[in-house]
Design a protein around this nucleic acid. Structure first.
Lengths: 245, 245
DNA sequence: ACAATAGTGTCTTTTAGACAGTATTTG
DNA sequence: CAAATACTGTCTAAAAGACACTATTGT
């Protein structure tokens, strides 16, 4: 059987929703398209999967090429695959979307085929901020759908995993960690209850001996523990970015 | 840009892990391969995505072709995409795996390109039953990995969704519904606590006026409610098929 | 009456929600 | 001292775990 006759070929790409926390808000990396289609629109970074690599490898490679992030900081995982026949007007493209998380990445440089690249507050992009965002970017292809799914993935994973650790640089303070939850969920979890939960979950964080120095009382510094799941989970309540709110 | 030179084409397929409950155990549909590679091994049903359909449509079509299941019974959703470069020795194939759930499907007929098709107890296939299963089938390609991921998806979704309803035919009794949890998790949830949780979750089930008739006391019959999520979730405890057990 | 299955009730423990209060720094 | 930030404690409510008990059928 020759699939070129019976089973037409597809192009396979990866798209990435790379998240970080900037200015207390969940931010995503977008690139400005320089060519048609969607020239001038903004898109998730991504690219074609090469012959000898799987999708995750391709995602790590694109992440490095477009942001300079090495594969050992942060976390990357598959989100889902988008395969609507008309999602790219040029050809049949199936895209394996991924999500990645990292603390304070450097300001990106424009890639070879992109006119520009910058961080956007996700709420400004998806329009769930205050009224209409100041300069809301138009998203290319089905990337608004991908970004919406990606944000829900991040929000959900904060509930039952220690993923929030991937958004802070070591060492970190508990208020910093709490600000991650506040940024992703839109509402800060109760201070006392948050501390009780984090410190009561074995292996979530490990304390150091030192404190930081900021405006007020110095906060104790922590490092990541080896726990990867929070059980029982730290659940969002309606109003904390939960889907049914 | 012509992707045939710059970006080599891929074949895109769907694979399905179709689950049902048979004889009190979680069962999956497998087809016996008649041709190389992996002739004589068992595989998840699946096939190529056609030019004008997306992956989910292809999955529903394959499900119908291989099991006769119409798309309005049961539930189907994307699992994840498997893209290791050498997962199929013949060519570069990217597979978008799906999971499907349905109550007591008919015994399947062999499809056109399969030597046979039958239901297997998942624990017999993956070998987490008693010692070594009686006749454990060899799984083709990376289908053991897919099936493991699919089982974990089902187990997890029983916790926070009303997915168990897709495994029973209406009308159903609460003991029937509880047996779904017992089959998927490997341990039956506590009787009283299970009833309290199901009946206490608004919209999970709606009672009818009638009872069934079996060996003992007749059980009240229920129909599906319109709730799709269970909140707070009905969590597995270690020993109930949870990943860390 | 007994086996088999369905269903109820209750006590305890765990966990989360709400929120008031105390501590340690800088200016 | 006030402002700012970090941290602790306590009361209450919700939910789950464990498990004993009662109910209704068939034989």
């Amino acid at each position: 059987m020759t699939y070129t006759t019976e089973h037409p070929p597809f192009a396979v790409t990866v798209d990435l929703a790379v998240f970080t926390i900037r200015d207390g808000a969940l931010a995503v990396l977008l690139v400005e398209r320089g060519a048609e289609p969607y020239a001038g629109s903004w898109a998730l970074p991504g690219g074609f999967v090469e012959p000898q690599e799987d999708a995750e490898t391709a995602a790590w490679r694109e992440l490095l090429e477009e942001t300079g992030v090495d594969r050992f900081e942060g976390h990357l995982e598959q989100l889902r695959t988008y395969s609507a026949p008309d999602r790219d007007p040029r050809m049949r493209v199936v895209s394996v979307a991924h999500v990645a998380f990292a603390p304070d990445l450097p300001e990106p440089e424009a890639g070879s085929d992109a006119a520009g690249a910058r961080w956007w507050a996700v709420d400004d992009v998806l329009g769930l901020g205050v009224g209409d965002g100041p300069d809301r970017p138009a998203l290319a292809f089905d990337h608004a759908e991908i970004l919406t799914d990606a944000r829900e993935r991040v929000r959900a994973k904060l509930e039952y995993t220690t993923l929030a650790l991937d958004f802070v640089a070591e060492p970190f303070t508990l208020p910093e960690l709490r600000r991650v939850y506040a940024a992703v969920w839109g509402v800060a979890p109760d201070l006392g209850n948050f501390r009780r939960k984090v410190l009561g979950t074995a292996g979530f964080v490990v304390p150091t001996e030192t404190h930081d120095s900021a405006g007020g009382r110095p906060a104790l510094l922590y490092r990541r523990g080896d726990a990867r799941v929070i059980q029982p989970p730290m659940l969002r309540t309606p109003g904390q970015g939960s889907p049914e709110a």
